[in-house]
Design a protein around this nucleic acid. Structure first.
Length: 604
DNA sequence: GTAGGGTTAG
């Protein structure tokens, strides 16, 4: 492996003309004003027959329902002489009343009066309000209850509202409904549906929407293509996404930053830095500056691929060139530094961000606390945890797991147990990571029965165990000479579809050797080699020793030969013990075999 | 857009 390419030439990190993020006007904003225009238009329409007294009554009613919590019981007597079921009056009330909840309550209250039948105008008004307030579920049940036919424009806004609330199937139904009504949905709505699907990573919906668009002969724009590029990235079809982007660029269009960012993120992950660099250059050339999110992807991608030095270099260059890293970027960088165990630099960044007025959030706290635990800075970790709790970030599953794992790593088992109990009191449900930390922490320190207990609890909670749930326990049982129980756990693990760790194989072989059961040890070695798993040097050596001790010289030499072929360097004492054995036995045949093996290993 | 495990190679 050569050095990582220095792809960030000066050109790529341009001094940001406006380091503050670009604010992209969201579609929903436009929808909202569109929705209001509609309502006001409707109101104007029946304003024609409106009399002054109606407006005055409406004001009185509005006043009462806004100020009296239980107005439903008194409204009739409070304002005598009003015909509440007169559409002019109640529509005027709905118009005046900006509070969605009160509007709905008033609507239902009027509905409970005799002689009332909802008219489409008021239904549409209530429905629009609910959509505007993003109350998707309320809007949906209102629609089902009243069974009125909303304005197509309102239904379009409703689609966005449903998408934002994750009610994808319902949103697609509304698309169908508009299609049946012969209404052609605006590109804005198609695009916002696609955007929501991309955000929810529902790629299949993106493709469905796009094929519907084609079917209805709706021509997409550069935003549409941007969403398709992102969809390709989510599906890991980065090359196709990249090709599509290049096609749009050739025609002279430039998609939004997020399409570029997704591609950059994907190429960072696959380590294709030449493409990352090219994309950054393209962005700059097309006057679509890389923003803080773009560089955030780059730094995150580099940290993920353990190119943290490079990430730090870019992070510092960005600061030099006038960018202002935000909370997320600082957190990502501190995380990278903690992984490198560069706690000094991590601390420096921590204080730097605070000095700049950017305060650590629960992510930042967790990253640093975890780094402190992993480097044995126990006192500082505990202090920072206390500080985090004071800020109200202490009661998340992740913060508990960070602490429990950190305490376990540092042998503070009792404290870990206390926190585990505290979780139950706070109603935070432990997950596999919580249990794994405890199983490993206790088992590693020889507390096998506690380890066994936590594994048992994990399974009793119906959680799916992972490789790590069993590994240390099996290793420790083998070390303690309890190979039988280790085998039972092994079987349980395999039955549950969990892949045993390579090191667990090694542990089993060593355990069997210690028990004097070399023959079975050899069987396990055979299984390992057949599965192309690489045993540890120690495993081979222990087998050679035990085999020679059991006078199985032929097997011992076979194992020795195998390990040399796998490129291991054999410890001197192993050779010495073999030579001693051969001298004792005075066997010229094995001596010859041994000599040949040695010759070959020297030759290679 | 960021966090906890394990992963890896050393």
């Amino acid at each position: 492996m050569g050095k990582p390419p220095l792809f960030f030439s000066n050109l790529c990190i341009r001094k940001s003309p406006n380091p503050v993020q670009n604010t992209n006007p969201q579609n929903r904003f436009r929808n909202r004003s569109f929705c209001n225009d509609k309502i006001d238009g409707q109101c104007e329409e029946f304003g024609k027959n409106l009399q002054n007294t109606d407006v005055v009554f409406a004001q009185e009613i509005s006043n009462v329902i806004q100020t009296r919590p239980r107005w439903e019981q008194t409204l009739l007597s409070d304002i005598p002489g009003v015909n509440f079921v007169d559409p002019n009056v109640y529509n005027e009330v709905l118009k005046q009343q900006k509070n969605v909840l009160l509007s709905v309550r008033f609507y239902y209250w009027v509905g409970s009066q005799n002689g009332f039948s909802p008219d489409p105008v008021s239904c549409n008004m209530i429905f629009s309000r609910l959509v505007e307030a993003k109350a998707a579920i309320a809007a949906k049940s209102f629609l089902e209850e009243t069974k009125f036919e909303p304005e197509p424009g309102c239904l379009e806004s409703y689609i966005g509202c449903l998408f934002e609330n994750g009610l994808v199937e319902e949103a697609l139904d509304v698309f169908e409904r508009l299609k049946m009504a012969g209404h052609s949905v605006s590109l804005k709505t198609w695009n916002s549906a696609m955007l929501q699907s991309v955000k929810a990573k529902r790629v299949e919906i993106v493709w469905k929407l796009y094929s519907d668009m084609l079917e209805r002969e709706v021509v997409g724009d550069v935003d549409t293509i941007g969403y398709l590029v992102q969809a390709f990235c989510i599906e890991n079809k980065v090359a196709e996404g990249h090709k599509l982007l290049q096609q749009v660029l050739e025609v002279g269009h430039v998609p939004s930053n997020s399409a570029f960012n997704k591609l950059i993120s994907a190429f960072c992950k696959s380590g294709d830095y030449a493409k990352v660099s090219a994309l950054l250059h393209t962005m700059i050339a097309k006057n679509c500056s890389p923003d803080i999110h773009t560089y955030q992807e780059v730094i995150h991608g580099l940290c993920k691929r353990r190119m943290r030095h490079e990430a730090l270099r870019i992070f510092n260059t960005l600061k030099d060139r006038g960018y202002f890293p935000d909370q997320v970027m600082y957190t990502t960088m501190i995380h990278g530094l903690c992984k490198m165990k560069w706690l000094g630099d991590a601390r420096k960044l921590w204080f730097e961000m605070i000095n700049k007025g950017i305060f650590p959030n629960e992510h930042t706290y967790n990253v640093l606390i975890n780094g402190l635990w992993r480097t044995g800075n126990t006192e500082e970790a505990e202090k920072l945890y206390k500080n985090m709790c004071e800020r109200g970030y202490g009661e998340f599953i992740v913060s508990y797991n960070t602490m429990i794992n950190g305490l376990c790593l540092n042998g503070k088992l009792d404290e870990a147990h206390v926190l585990f109990d505290q979780m139950a009191e706070k109603g935070i449900v432990p997950d596999t990571i919580t249990y794994n930390s405890l199983i490993q922490g206790f088992s590693k320190r020889g507390k096998i029965s506690e380890g066994r207990y936590f594994l048992d609890q994990l399974l009793k909670q119906g959680l799916q165990p992972s490789t790590a749930s069993y590994t240390v326990l099996i290793e420790k049982l083998c070390e303690a000479g309890n190979v039988g129980e280790a085998k039972a756990f092994w079987k349980d693990m395999v039955d549950r579809g969990v892949e045993p760790a390579v090191s667990a194989h090694d542990a089993m072989i060593l355990g069997l050797c210690e028990q004097g059961n070399v023959a079975e040890g050899m069987e396990w070695l055979g299984t390992m080699l057949k599965s192309r798993l690489k045993p540890q040097k120690q495993t081979f050596e222990r087998l050679v020793q035990c085999l020679s001790k059991a006078d199985k010289l032929s097997d011992a030499l076979f194992v020795l030969d195998y390990m040399l072929k796998m490129g291991f360097e054999v410890s001197e004492y192993i050779f010495l013990s073999l030579v001693k054995k051969l001298c004792q036995d005075n066997s010229s045949h094995f001596e010859m075999c041994f000599g040949r093996i040695l010759e070959r290993s020297r030759g290679s």
